[in-house]
């Protein structure tokens, strides 16, 4: 029999090529300091005086307060505001490989390992940073959650030598192995039922795809977010156009402005989508080709309709709906009396 083990999909070649990639430094906001150590110990319920009692610590082999090893990752976190890293930190995204996988439909993620190892204690006054290596992307696996890939990142933590590192390389003080499973859910439900284990489940809600927005189309989406249905209009000949573009199809003028649609129109055509069921959409999913009373058409979801009662010519009225905590506002259309 022919060997039927599947070769990998082409896009995985790009993923595989990224394995081994090193991402630049992410610095700690503050050097290792006693107040932060004290607060961490209070919150975590750690009572070892080595971390908080300078008098006691002076009697130990360390001679002064050291930081709890488990705090290692905390020193280099961004703080209250996401992605707010100290100056000099890399802008590279060590998670770019996960974005690639999302693009192929592996939308969900769960953290499965977070293993810290330590080379030595760090002392008050040391300045830490870490670098990240994409260590491994496994073969495709199917688990109870779904089908996907285990992705392993290794963050190496260093203590920066003063004066630009004179006197040799920076000391490696520890390492964090962080592994996630990036997967397509086994069922098409939004992945809200990830099992709770020791590793913190990090399964984001699947969101609607965001539109690509350009300088030619931004007005439409900003209008939608403000509850306005805007149509592009040629300033030269007055032609209305949708989808918008940089130039008039009639007179080729680049000058344009917008008009606000009255929001009424009729169903020019429609479909009711059943299969495949792709999260986060609800099925059946009715979608209309709406002809606005101003004369242009647009594609939009239909709301307040019964599957068997949608008809071409049905009068509809726009309504705006926000999705994903307001990240996306779409014009949808609801039937109205003729």
């Amino acid at each position: 029999m022919r060997e039927t083990k599947l070769a990998e999909q082409d896009w995985m070649t790009e993923v595989r090529a990224m394995v081994g990639r090193e991402y630049g430094r992410v610095y700690a906001w503050d050097e290792v300091n006693a107040p932060m150590i004290r607060q961490w110990c209070e919150i975590m319920g750690v009572e070892n005086p080595l971390y908080t009692d300078a008098t006691y610590a002076a009697t130990t082999e360390f001679g002064a307060i050291v930081a709890p090893p488990a705090m290692l990752q905390a020193w280099c976190l961004e703080g209250l505001h996401p992605n707010n890293y100290p100056p000099g930190s890399t802008t590279e995204n060590p998670y770019e490989v996960l974005r690639l996988m999302e693009g192929q439909g592996y939308q969900s993620v769960v953290a499965v390992n977070s293993d810290l190892t330590f080379e030595r204690y760090v002392k008050v006054g040391e300045k830490l940073y870490y670098t990240t290596r994409l260590d491994a992307v496994g073969e495709q696996k199917t688990t109870a959650l779904g089908t996907g890939y285990f992705v392993t990142l290794i963050m190496s933590f260093f203590s920066e030598k003063p004066n630009g590192g004179e006197g040799g390389q920076d000391d490696k003080v520890g390492e964090l192995l962080f592994r996630v499973f990036k997967f397509r859910p086994a069922n098409a439900q939004p992945a809200a039922e990830a099992p709770k284990g020791d590793a913190a489940p990090a399964v984001p809600k699947i969101k609607r795809p965001k539109p690509g927005i350009s300088d030619d189309t931004r007005f439409f989406w900003e209008g939608a977010a403000a509850g306005k249905l805007l149509i592009q209009r040629c300033k030269c000949c007055g032609t209305l156009r949708h989808p918008p573009g940089p130039v008039c199809t009639k007179c080729h003028s680049f000058e344009w402005d917008t008009v606000e649609s009255g929001g009424t129109g009729s169903i020019y055509s429609f479909v009711v989508m059943h299969y495949p069921e792709v999260p986060p959409f609800d099925y059946p999913n009715p979608v209309g080709l709406i002809e606005l009373d101003e004369g242009v058409r647009l594609i939009a979801g239909l709301v307040g309709v019964k599957r068997n009662e949608i008809t071409i010519g049905q009068r509809v009225q726009v309504e705006f709906q926000a999705f994903d905590d307001g990240e996306l506002t779409l014009p949808l259309f609801r039937p109205v009396a003729p």
Partner: peptide, 24 residues
């Protein structure tokens, strides 16, 4: 139904941006 169109302003993303957010 999953094609990985991104939100950058290249034409294809903008074009399919009229359809993908509706699940069309």
């Amino acid at each position: 139904g999953s094609y990985g169109f991104a939100s950058t302003p290249i034409f294809e993303n903008v074009n399919y941006g009229w359809y993908m957010p509706h699940g069309f």
